[in-house]
Amino acid sequence: MSYRVRLFAVKHSRFFERLYHSVNPAIVGTLRGVNKVFGKKLDRPITAMESGLKGFLFDCKMCGNCALSKTGMSCPMNCPKTIRNGPCGGVRADGMCEVKPEMKCVWVQAWDGAARMKFGDDIKDIEFAIDHRDQGKSTWLRIARGEIAEKVSDRH
């Protein structure tokens, strides 16, 4: 089920990009306020909400360093090699994954999704080696707290 939803999200990457651009500032703004009033008290439910929503839509793995808007709405952490600058050289001729032949290559999907997006060229930026300590953290909260830059509003 979630695999099919994931493919749907990539297919409609332009729509999800627009949604992200319109909703994300509101989410981050709200969380900034929440953070001021409640501190870390609401971290668990907020993280659970992000995990639930993004898990359903994108098979999000909660790496804490969300790159979805730069990777064609295809979550790179679903790559069996967790490649964040992909694809690898093992992609099958039909575009399926080398490791999981029943799954479309996450990075073939990513380049495909990015091609439909307004800021799709962001996929050409290099993702720095990930900080594994952020696994399980909410990217939304991290942006609200200024721990990571809000990619879209910063750049465009």
Binding site: K81, I83, R84, N85, G86, C88, I126, E127, F128, A129
Partner: peptide, 11 residues
């Protein structure tokens, strides 16, 4: 797979 080929070259 702590790094990927690109972050490895960068390292």
């Amino acid at each position: 797979f702590d790094l990927d080929s690109i972050s490895l070259a960068q390292t």
